[in-house]
């Protein structure tokens, strides 16, 4: 499965958000998207997911033009994991995962035995079968995120798009969710996720894409392209990069000489 985006432009009224995005990603990879708030990450995702109309350019999924696919067909190719959010009503974990099977059903059909098996297998894939009958609102934020991942797996697509899956999660849950995501990429899924945490990119990403004001600033392996200069360009602060030699792992911390952002009293 290949996702190819060519010269993608999008604007809200007169506000240009995407100014010609082109990239290609293939399955078996975790692609992280970095960019400051408002850089166009979510807009890019929403164009690819068919949630926004009026973009110019080309989005090809395995060579097929995405704009010619119906919602059901598109849902068979790309699934979406939203940021964790509250719902007005409470469903069991199994029912939440079952929702991922909706694209397989006829308009007036309820999920049946086959769909339930699929949902349970998806719960197994992220090791949360024990949560099957729990109430979705009664489990922890990290567990909820895993349930949403299982829901995407039940949708049986090779491409999964995640919008900041780790926001609102505590440190332990962030790592658990990222590890699960990484495992899925190893199993052959293409996972595209936006993140605000460069550490996660260094730790888990196979590839990173940097979006600066609606264009791709850089794309490649994290330890090759993420430099102090680029991070400063993304976030507007000075960052120091360090490397732990024995783990061949880079990490960044904010520069200590940084000027204070709060006026002295």
């Amino acid at each position: 499965m290949t996702l190819q985006v060519n010269d993608l432009y999008f604007s809200y009224k007169s506000n240009e958000v995407l100014n010609g995005i082109s990239f290609q990603a293939t399955e078996g990879s975790l692609l992280c998207v970095l960019g400051r708030n408002g850089a166009g990450k979510s807009t890019l995702f929403r164009c690819v997911l068919g949630l926004l109309k009026g973009w110019r350019g080309q989005i090809l999924i395995d060579g097929v033009d995405a704009s010619e696919l119906s919602p059901v067909q598109l849902a068979g190719k790309i699934s979406y994991i939203p940021q964790n959010h509250s719902t007005a009503f409470s469903y069991s974990v199994l029912d939440m995962v079952l929702m991922g099977t909706t694209a397989r059903l006829n308009r007036f059909e309820n999920p049946g035995k086959q769909e339930r098996k699929l949902a349970e297998a998806s719960l197994d894939l992220v090791n949360i079968r024990h949560l099957r009958d729990r109430n979705f609102q009664g489990i922890s934020g990290g567990e909820q995120q895993l349930v949403l991942i299982a829901r995407a797996l039940a949708q049986q697509t090779r491409v999964i798009i995640m919008d900041e899956p780790c926001s609102n999660l505590d440190y332990g849950n962030q790592i658990k969710v990222m590890k699960a995501v990484k495992d899925l990429a190893k199993q052959g899924y293409l996972i595209i996720q936006s993140t605000h945490n460069p550490e996660h990119v260094f730790l888990f990403a196979d590839e990173v894409m940097v979006i600066l004001d609606g264009i791709i600033g850089a794309m490649g392996r994290a330890d090759e392209i993420l430099s102090e200069e680029l991070l400063r360009e993304i976030y507007g602060i000075h960052v120091n990069l360090h490397e732990i030699k024995e783990r061949r792992l880079k990490f960044c911390i904010p520069d200590q000489r940084e000027v204070s952002y709060v006026e002295a009293l």
């Binding site: 919602p71 699934s79 979406y80 939203p82 929702m99 991922g100 059903l105 308009r107």
Partner: peptide, 23 residues
């Protein structure tokens, strides 16, 4: 009554429902 499963999915919000194949 016939659409009741889709009502479940629709309570997730329009956009999420659409990514799961619901118009």
């Amino acid at each position: 009554l016939l659409l009741r499963w889709r009502l479940n999915v629709l309570t997730m919000g329009d956009e999420e429902a659409r990514t799961m194949g619901i118009n």
